[in-house]
Design a protein around this nucleic acid. Structure first.
Lengths: 195, 195
DNA sequence: GAGAGTCTAGACGTATTAGTCTAGAACTAT
DNA sequence: ATAGTTCTAGACTAATACGTCTAGACTCTC
């Protein structure tokens, strides 16, 4: 083997830093190479394509975000799940910006690399399973209408409430939690989650 | 004068169609010209730059959206203002996709063209004035906390509730209005808007 | 009808990108 | 040591943008 000056993780870290600074569009292969002072050839020894790298970056970020969310749902605490978003955002401002200010398509331009498809599918399914679980707990069944409500209260409202602060690179104020919680109680009702 | 085969409006219409189909990134000068079978030279006789065209497109769209919103606020009907978003979305699916699925920066890449700056500033100010008016009506004063609540209930929640349907090019179902209205009443209280 | 200004027409220049390719350096296993 | 593999190194290719430039056609005014 030749000497390995630049690792898989090095490229990912550089990409993450570039994305945090100027968004995923600024994560070009040349920019990554320049930041590491690595040659482009080395990049393509580690990653099949730009999409492969950005797909990995996105997936790792979304899984980190999702972990705490899934736990609160499995613990049966819907309100905590709704408040997980502002909490995670406060603890991970840069990653939160990537996840909530941009869409998957800003990362992976073409088709998803085959190596990541499975991971993305599992991520999606896990998230949807959470919504179903919550819908059943909070609304008695998991029909389309209950799923729709669950999405609203667990995903749409929390991310919307946090967005403007992310745009300004600010930590969301406590008022955000209050707005989310008030909305939660109005839609779900007080104490409807399983104990 | 030479004969005018392609008008300002023709280019805007072509751009709007392209944006509706594949997003603002697909609105390249070449794509517009190809769609109209116009030469690029003609484009640059009408518009100073690509940003000038996309800026105009965005501003016209946002003003169309904002018009109904401002009216409901000036009529003192906060709930109607919150429900204006799903209503407008249903009546203008394509324009709504442009406005709510993409950000201003997906349209204008660099600095805003000088000719549009004033219009954008006035648009912003008018919107913020609405939020202030509402904050005073609904919460008694227009401090930062009241403005923040107003933003949540009039802008963030309605657009978030509608987003997933826009992504699927679907008309938002009535349930969306219910979710927005329930949230509105929870945050503002019933009948707090001026009569 | 002549001159001037405006628009059509599209080739061209320049920049930026993803990805390829060849050469050689360094390390490992035999 | 040496053969083979892996990685470094960066020039090169191809595609796609925006924007410019020159030539000529058209129309309006005088």
């Amino acid at each position: 083997m030749g000497r390995s000056l630049f690792s898989h993780a090095d490229f990912l870290a550089a990409a993450r830093a570039l994305a945090a600074e100027n968004g995923p569009a600024a994560v070009t292969v040349d920019a990554i190479a320049a930041r590491l002072k690595a040659p482009k050839g080395s990049f393509y020894h580690r990653f099949a394509s730009r999409d492969a790298l950005l797909g990995e970056l996105w997936l790792a970020t979304v899984l980190a975000y999702q972990e705490g969310f899934v736990q609160t749902i499995e613990a049966g605490d819907g309100l905590a799940a709704a408040l997980h978003t502002p909490a995670w955002v406060r603890a991970n401002l840069d990653d939160a910006r990537l996840l909530l200010l941009y869409s998957r398509h800003d990362f992976v331009q073409g088709e998803w690399p085959a190596a990541l498809r499975r991971g993305v599918r599992e991520q999606t399914e896990r998230f949807e399973a959470c919504l179903e679980t919550f819908a059943r707990d909070a609304f008695g069944r998991a029909g389309t209408s209950q799923i729709r409500r669950a999405t609203f209260v667990l995903a749409e409202v929390p991310t919307a409430a946090v967005k403007q602060h992310l745009q300004r690179r600010e930590v969301p104020p406590p008022l955000v939690d209050e707005l989310i919680a008030t909305t939660y109680r109005a839609i779900v009702g007080p104490g409807k989650a399983r104990s």
